[in-house]
Amino acid sequence: MPKTKYDKEYNVKQYLRERFFPHIWCPGCGHGIVLGSLLRAVEELGLDPTEIVMTSGIGCSARISGYVNFHSLHTIHGRALAFATGVKLSTPKLNLIVPMGDGDALAIGGNHFIHAARRNIDITAIVMNNRIYGMTGGQFSPLTGYGQKATTAPYSTIDNEFDVVKLATAAGASFVARSTTFHATECIDLIKKAISHKGFSVVEIFSQCPTHYGRKNKKGDASNMMELYKKTTVPIGSKKLEQDPSLIERGIFVDNKEAPEYCDEYEKIIQTAMKGRA
């Protein structure tokens, strides 16, 4: 028997709005694996569902918020982190989890992403990187990268991609991690740590889109795409990087527990203001 800590039984259905299942995602879409990992993380942490606000934007990823029986705020494209900032600062006891797609996080919502990171407000952003705009039918995204095919790049893309980890780190996020849907147990662990972390936390999860990105770029079916995640990624600092620097690192890149959190800092402003000092 393999060594696994998953001999315990999960009950993710307790958090689901089951009447909306089966979900709308395509067969093999990685987003469902992310949803599963997220709910297992919530279960392991024993969070109170009445203290979780799932805030999302628009797109395939954003549909997560409707499926979970937490407070759910399905907003407009790209602005989820700005809505979440209002929820969090007004009521800091709430846990804010923001599932985001490529566009929400880094195109239309890129400004909110870097500023939420800069403030280090206690919100968990889960960037579901599928390298495509899925809901609108397969246009390239800021995570597609150079030389790929998409419905708006029939001759191949000339746009470079963002590195989510580097961007989040540079912008000031105090917890930054990366994993893939192949590494589902790692995802659970990273999401748990991200939610527990006090400050702005980013977990990038490579999530396959077999319907659009995979098909356009001849990556095979969902299983093949997950095999690619296995082959092309390694834990941070792996020796394999010496032979093959093109490998992508997984794990926790930033875990800064000292960085002041925004709501805590605002509490100090209130204390100062109430004493009548400007």
């Binding site: 705020l73 700005a82 809505f83 900032t85 209002g86 929820v87 007004s90 009521t91 909110h112 500023h115």
Partner: peptide, 18 residues
Amino acid sequence: MEDEIASMAAIIGASLTG
């Protein structure tokens, strides 16, 4: 906030918490 759009979004979020 970082822009006008975010300001509008933030007040909506805060209104929902009462």
